[in-house]
């Protein structure tokens, strides 16, 4: 026989008391407030993008991308600047990526933990915080004058590379640290050397993280103005529109960031849409390179086995 307890006779021990009601109210307020703050921080981001594209719309066309500027920069396209930025970022990437990764591998996989590696790590972090105009001055002295490259794509991209090295080293270090120590131990215990362990086990597993650092670097260097202005970018340079190989490493070049600066501040009577169009192309270039790296990173991560 079932115990005959009527539902109504159960004491309401799980019902909502005033104290609980107050906490639930706090909870609702917190949720709305946090969502509101997130929205508020996203609004400017999209507002900027929409405003830029809106203002730039009259100028944007395929011709704008692949033609040279005309009429004292007041019409035509921005091909020399776009190509210049691609060259600068590409060359900086080609130098900074291998150097940064290998330096970080030494620091993490070879150097004994101790005072030396602590000091180097501290130096790297501080170097990442040095303002870009200081790097610009260093580049002017070291690459343009001392090394004798003159004001050129080479000097400018080396300056950008030096500027982005700390970012790459720091992010590669993070990526290497995230590879479990047990993988290294397993490899060492089979008699693998440090290099074999690094090459076959550690690096492949750190690649996705390393790419994050490279993405950061691309975003930063593509937009830099001061370092390239000091070391290799010029006001105007005429090259064949649409020609991918129009620059040589010892040439000076135009760059999107510098072009935006000159058109906005140094050239009178430019069409209102022009600076916005340049900005849109600059943003699109950075986003495009980022999208490519992110796709690569997702692909690499999907091949990761743990």
């Amino acid at each position: 026989m079932k115990p005959a307890i009527a539902r109504s006779s159960i004491t309401p021990r799980f019902s909502e008391t005033p104290a609980i009601a107050r906490r639930l109210l706090e909870e609702r307020i917190a949720r709305r407030l946090l969502a509101g703050v997130l929205t508020a921080s996203l609004v400017p981001l999209f507002a900027i993008l929409i405003y830029l594209v809106w203002q730039a719309a009259p100028m944007l066309s395929w011709g704008f991308l692949v033609e040279s500027p005309r009429d004292g920069m007041r019409s035509g396209g921005l091909w020399p600047a776009l190509l210049g930025t691609l060259y600068l970022v590409g060359a900086a990437l080609a130098v900074a990526t291998p150097v940064g990764i290998l330096a970080s591998v030494y620091l993490n996989e070879y150097a004994r933990p101790g005072r030396f590696s602590r000091i180097v790590n501290l130096a790297v972090i501080n170097l990442a915080g040095v303002p870009s105009i200081v790097h610009a001055l260093f580049g002017l002295g070291a690459f343009v004058a001392f090394a004798g490259f003159g004001r050129s794509i080479l000097a400018a991209s080396l300056t950008l590379a030096v500027m982005s090295l700390p970012v790459i080293i720091a992010s590669t270090t993070e990526a290497l640290k995230s590879v479990p120590q047990s993988f290294r131990e397993a490899s060492w215990n089979l008699g693998a050397t440090r290099w074999q362990t690094t090459r076959h086990i550690v690096l492949p597993n750190a690649l996705p993280g390393i790419f994050t650092g490279i993405i950061l670097m691309v975003s930063r260097t593509a937009g830099e103005t001061a370092p390239v202005l000091f070391t290799g970018a010029v006001f105007y340079k005429s090259i064949a529109g649409g020609d991918l190989f129009a620059y040589n490493l010892l040439d000076q070049c135009m760059a999107l960031s510098v072009h935006l600066f000159t058109v906005s501040t140094q050239v009178p009577n430019v069409p209102e849409a022009l600076p916005y169009a340049i900005a849109v192309v600059l943003v699109a270039t950075v986003l495009g390179v980022n999208a490519l790296s992110i796709a690569l990173r997702v692909y690499l991560r999907s091949r990761k086995n743990w």
């Binding site: 047990s182 993988f183 131990e185 060492w188 089979l190 008699g191 050397t193 076959h200 086990i201 743990w306």
Partner: peptide, 19 residues
């Protein structure tokens, strides 16, 4: 390298390599 080749070790937690 030669020593560890001749004297192998198995650990408390299985640690297969991520391959």
């Amino acid at each position: 390298i030669a020593l560890r080749r001749a004297v192998g070790m198995v650990f408390q937690r299985p640690n297969p390599l991520p391959i």
